[in-house]
Design a protein around this nucleic acid. Sequence first.
DNA 1: ATGGTATATTCTATGTATCGAATATTGTTA
DNA 2: TAACAATATTCGATACATAGAATATACCAT
Lengths: 113, 113
Amino acid sequence: MQDLLRRFKADLFQALAHPTRIAIVEQLRDGELSAGALIERLGIEQANASQHLAVLRAKNVLTNRKVGNQVFYSVRDRLIIQVLDIMRQYFHAHMNEIVATLKAIDKADKARR
Amino acid sequence: MQDLLRRFKADLFQALAHPTRIAIVEQLRDGELSAGALIERLGIEQANASQHLAVLRAKNVLTNRKVGNQVFYSVRDRLIIQVLDIMRQYFHAHMNEIVATLKAIDKADKARR
DNA sequence: ATGGTATATTCTATGTATCGAATATTGTTA
DNA sequence: TAACAATATTCGATACATAGAATATACCAT
């Protein structure tokens, strides 16, 4: 059981472990949005957005409701948003090192291209 | 910047997105432990533990200090533990569905073998 | 120096995640 | 019904993550 619980948590973290999916959740912080609105705001491919939304749906991070042609998404439980807020605190607490790390990542990224 | 921040958050979630790594962080909740002690408590391969510890170190979730032959690990910032605590709340809030999901996962796992 | 213990790293095989392109589905409107 | 709009799914290529086996490193004791 303890073990299953850990797998569940890991699964949930996995669901959030992508910048685009974080962006989606952040966009939904203040209420629901249609898939189309999300795509527009994030400026990403429709198929890609839909795939990420599917991940978040599968892990029950988001719920959706259909209204005619459109699908509106919202965050199912604000605890998820709370987690993101703590992450923000964490970020502020460790700004210095983090910025250094980010720069390193960015540099590595550019080198790879 | 907003973008880099999201990548940072995603990275941190990624670091926590494995049951073994969650178990490690949970073991360290009340203070530091040596790598050996962790391995013993979790009952996993030495090399595997070391790899997971490397991930957690790389993302600055853990810090370590050497004492002679041994390396003691601890959680760098209790905010991380707070995140896990919120996950626990989340778990309790959605117990029913989660248990169903876990069973499904388990079943799929067994079918795969 | 030699051997032993604790931990880390590298290698390799396998599985999982991601993207964009193409296609399918569902609902709406003419 | 046909055409269109919004969203979802499937596919194929590439990248990333994981486990275990083998090997390396660091420190201690003799």
